[in-house]
Design a binder for these strands. Structure first.
Length: 430
RNA sequence: GCCCAGGUAGUGUAGUGGCCCAUCAUGUCGGCCUGUCACGCCGACGACUCGGAUUCGAAUUCCGACCUGGGCGCCA
């Protein structure tokens, strides 16, 4: 009966494991194999004079990264990794690996990210990479475990859509029978329609597509968005929800992912403190102007240099609030006392933006007005605008970038490290 | 869209006009080795993205193509 390598301890008598050949050290009369599965690494020691001919024949055939099944007795040995080793009665080659390998799994020689992504299946055998995706899975799970008990309904919305509804970013056109269609940039409009449907609290974790030709370490053309929308809530409510969720995710990962965190040499995650600081937009641009010496006018977007300067100044997660209405999307609700300011916010990690959200415009005429004010025509938004004429509740929500969350949590240098098969300007395979 | 940088064995690199039929490491193959843990030692194998130009001579300079990384704008 095969067991995970992690479960082989110095107290185990007999064990059968299946894994990949991580390393081989042949000392002549004695050969050491390191066998790896997703749970860990086990040393298999072969004293050539004391094992059968079948074992000797098998080990002549194996190459690095071949898949093998080994059965034998476990010995507690202090000088072996993990304090135990396996001396095989049987050593079976299940699937031979060709050589040379496209990249060095043991990482004696580093591989470029590009090379690694070309051979992602092999790259992902590396304990460090396995750990990233075990943690990413835990992040997703913790979102479900946070939202379901709070009454959220998990929805899925179309990724194939008819028109560029939000404006701003570029969309990927696709062929949809005889019609023109696009890949959706965000579930935004559909989440809002479900507010009209009375679902009250919805969320979706799904792909979003942006056809921007950017080429940076923090952008993807296909990303994963954790999207939330809540009726009878305003921006302040959903900001509290968001910061509480972030802390919940960090705690969950800290509790559940000790081994992966160890593999990443992180050990203890720094759990963010709540409440996150609320930094009004005018203060944010002041900080940036002072830090960079570059003047920033009210109403300017906060560029990368400014964002970095503000992040260094803040040193922890924070919200930017009180945004000028002019530089936020049409669906952000303007403040009653000063409509030039809106109820939108961005959640920032010191390194980058993680999420943006707002209290939404739920009044049909105001929404139509704001769409026109952005130079868009309400006629193209009929499917979206109609629900606002039939009892749309006030609501608020946000979208949180899953890859950026994982990337900042684990201090990854490149967002592509947080996706198994990233889609960027140049990469469409694997 | 704009700007910068770069393409040398499977992988990561050195080499900026002749000292290079190309450095080092890792790998692969062969040999020696019974406690390695980046095992060690000996030997071998394996590469200048493509096309054109300059030159007595080009991995190296120039032009073009192709490919790639990064920065900015914008954004999650």
């Amino acid at each position: 009966m095969r067991i995970p390598i992690k479960e082989v301890t110095s107290g185990t008598a007999q064990a059968e494991v299946i894994g990949w050949v991580h390393e081989v050290r042949d000392l002549g009369g004695l050969t050491f194999f390191l066998i790896r599965d997703r749970t860990g690494i086990l040393q298999v020691t072969i004293p050539k004079k004391k094992v059968g001919d079948e074992v000797l024949a098998a080990i002549r055939e194996v190459s690095r990264e071949s898949l093998v099944r080994v059965r034998g007795s476990v010995k507690a040995i202090e000088k072996a990794p993990g304090g135990r080793e396996l001396v095989p009665d049987s050593f079976e080659l299940l699937a031979r690996s060709e050589s040379p390998l496209p990249l060095d799994v043991v990482e004696k020689v580093p591989a470029d990210l590009d090379t690694r992504l070309d051979a992602r299946f092999l790259d992902a055998r590396r304990p460090r990479v396995t750990a990233i995706f075990q943690i990413r899975s835990a992040v997703t799970r913790s979102v479900y475990e946070y939202l379901f008990p709070r009454g959220f309904v998990n929805i899925t919305t179309p990724k194939v859509v008819a028109a560029a509804t939000e404006g701003g970013t570029e969309l990927f056109p696709i062929a949809y029978f005889e019609k023109e269609a696009f890949l959706n940039q965000s579930p935004q409009l559909y989440k809002q329609m479900m507010m009209a449907a009375g679902f009250e609290k919805v969320f979706e974790i799904g792909p979003i597509f942006r056809a921007e030709e950017h080429n940076t370490t923090k952008h993807l053309n296909e990303a994963t968005s954790i999207d939330v929308e809540v009726s009878f809530a305003d921006h302040l409510d959903v900001m509290r929800l968001l910061e509480d969720l972030i802390v919940h995710i960090y705690r969950f990962v800290q509790d559940q992912c000790a081994d992966p965190l160890e593999a990443l040499e992180i050990g203890e995650l720094a759990i963010p403190d709540t409440p996150f600081e609320r930094l009004p937009y005018p203060d944010a641009i002041d900080i940036a102007a002072k830090a960079t010496g570059e003047p920033i006018s009210y109403g300017d977007d906060i560029g990368t240099v400014a964002e970095k300067a503000i992040g260094e100044h803040m040193g922890a997660h924070y919200f930017i609030t009180d945004w000028p209405t002019a530089i936020k999307p049409y669906y952000a609700m303007p403040c009653e006392d000063d409509p030039s300011v809106c109820k939108a916010f961005d959640l920032m990690h010191p390194r980058m933006e993680l999420s943006s959200g707002a209290a939404r415009v739920h009044l049909h005429d105001l929404l139509a007005h704001q769409i026109r004010a952005k130079g868009l025509s309400p006629e193209n938004f009929e499917f979206y605008l109609t629900p606002f004429r039939y009892g749309m509740p006030p609501h608020a929500g946000w979208g949180l970038g899953a890859e950026r969350l994982v990337m900042t949590m684990l201090s990854l240098a490149n967002i592509r490290e947080a996706v198994l098969f990233p889609r960027d300007r140049h990469r469409l395979t694997p």
